[in-house]
Design a protein around this nucleic acid. Sequence first.
DNA 1: CTTCTCCATGGAAACGATTCCATCATGGTT
DNA 2: AACCATGATGGAATCGTTTCCATGGAGAAG
Lengths: 352, 352
Amino acid sequence: MEKRATIKDVAEAAGVGVATVSRVLSGGSASPETRERVLAVAAQLDYRPSALGRNLRQRRTGGMGLLVPDLTDTFYGQLAEGVLACARSAGEPVVLGSTGDDPEQESELIGMLLEQSVDRLIAVPTGDSDTWAPAIRAGMTVVFADRLPSQAVLEDPGAAAVGDLMLLDGLAPAPRARPLDAPSVVADDRAGIRTAVRYLRGLGHKRIAFLGGPGHDRREAAFREAVGAPVDEELVVFGTGSRDSAYAAASGLFQSRPDLSAVVAGGNVLGEAAVLAARELDLRVPQDVSLVMYDDVPWAELCSPPLTVIAQPGRDMGYRAAELVLRAGGRRPRSVVLPTELIIRGSCGPHR
Amino acid sequence: MEKRATIKDVAEAAGVGVATVSRVLSGGSASPETRERVLAVAAQLDYRPSALGRNLRQRRTGGMGLLVPDLTDTFYGQLAEGVLACARSAGEPVVLGSTGDDPEQESELIGMLLEQSVDRLIAVPTGDSDTWAPAIRAGMTVVFADRLPSQAVLEDPGAAAVGDLMLLDGLAPAPRARPLDAPSVVADDRAGIRTAVRYLRGLGHKRIAFLGGPGHDRREAAFREAVGAPVDEELVVFGTGSRDSAYAAASGLFQSRPDLSAVVAGGNVLGEAAVLAARELDLRVPQDVSLVMYDDVPWAELCSPPLTVIAQPGRDMGYRAAELVLRAGGRRPRSVVLPTELIIRGSCGPHR
DNA sequence: CTTCTCCATGGAAACGATTCCATCATGGTT
DNA sequence: AACCATGATGGAATCGTTTCCATGGAGAAG
């Protein structure tokens, strides 16, 4: 275990000062021959500058943090791959955390990142703006992906509700509606859900249910909007994030409302639960119940029938978010809304 | 954006020296009243020690690195969740990298981690011992998970082959067979594959194929061993890691050898490909071809028929690996072999 | 020839923590 | 009463880098 050469070693071996070595290595000015000599010596000594010294000096860790709810969820796996791809091409490290959709864990992880002086963060948020205020206040550049933090409860509950609704319109949200001063990369949930609901309507379905999980409030709201005025509240149910809870929610939904004929699942874990619950209750897909699932995942095609999905570009989402957070050097970047696509496979049929 | 308090601020505010503050905070000796005062001031100033200063002083970054081939592969998602769970309970950061099963990218990522002075690493290796020698030489504590690096080619090819075979026996490998001085956490591939092959044999299958991917050499060898002496070489095929290549391999296998009656897929991506390819070629599972897949993933149950799998505990694997790498403070920890379990669902039938 | 400018260069400070070591006070032992 | 052991404490060094600033030499402009 040999110890690494430091900049001082290089300086001595090259017969120059450390300042010169630093300059040469970071593209400062130096005479051609000096530059060449330093470079040669550095290569020969296999010198690699230590990120430790640099980080301390510039009082910030390079790279970025990444917070996702659950890596077992294929969609977040895709998103993470996108982030990693971008980070790799920039040569930057990525510090990963998994929140389990628990605001408290999220808070702790934010604290940990702060301690590490990681000042750039991509997050699929779980907590509300109160959870995120400390990070932003500390000067972190935060880019939200896939979701936005829900607005913290304000003195006037009415105002918060209005804010939530306006959030739906991803285009030009009122200042009130975007409580946190952070850009985001999200899919066009509203269009995605609307397309799915219209598709189901076109097949003759009247009683369409929404099966959601944590962070699916925008999708829920889009669902309500697409369905129109009086939404049957029993047809909107939520799981808490675990597969068990998703299954319970799906199963409960099917049992309490045998009259429903179609389900929109707000995410792939929910979709999985819906398929399982339907099978357990001897409901055939799509004869007895039609299913549209948010997220296109490789196994959607493996189901029988293959699942009709609302595809959102998970990998792109991660890549774009990483790009935003990296080039945040300039001004606050614009937020990005990515398109969704309804991929029709075999899990939806005409209303019997 | 207020800037954080430093140890110096705390020291001044408490009227003590920085050394005392440091001692109090890291559990050194101090008089009760001093300790109390420092603690109070620190809390009041919301002081959090900067990892930057500490890391530089101790010439090492806390936490650990994690290198996996592909986070889109559910199994590695599970493994990563295990690592993160352990890291979180230890309050340690995790630096993530995805190698795409490419030794070159792996090398680059190792270099990046070295630069960051990350000296603990959990890896699902892709490259051979030559790729890994630098990391170990630099003093990194490396724990391999799920696989071991293949032995680099030596002067005597015969010797390398012997080494590979001996690796199979996870119990007491000869020094020659474990080229790298690093502990590992792997599943008992040999037993898992053997059980699956016996099960298929019991159903009357004679022509059993193995469909593998990168890093499945131990599983391949176990397959050869379980099948017995003369293995039909056309029945052992490999994809390169991408889903496309896995599909191509599966499809090619089915087309070139219509006489095969059962397939063992070496991983969930391969299993997925096999299902897809079979469907495309109008081969019914399990009537026309039986399938056993390595890895139990949530969607295995969703397939029709639900897939019979060799389950390995991905989450545990990650957790144990993280434990090993964290408490490597003492001596080099022993390697761990985790049990596998054949979960019989519906993708295997009697040989027609 | 003088003076001014410009550039390459190296010394030293700074970043924020840990830790070695010297100092000092206290209390017990001879 | 002199001495020693013990424990709390603070100053200063250290980690490896970047960056500020002073220096010195060379060439240009006067």
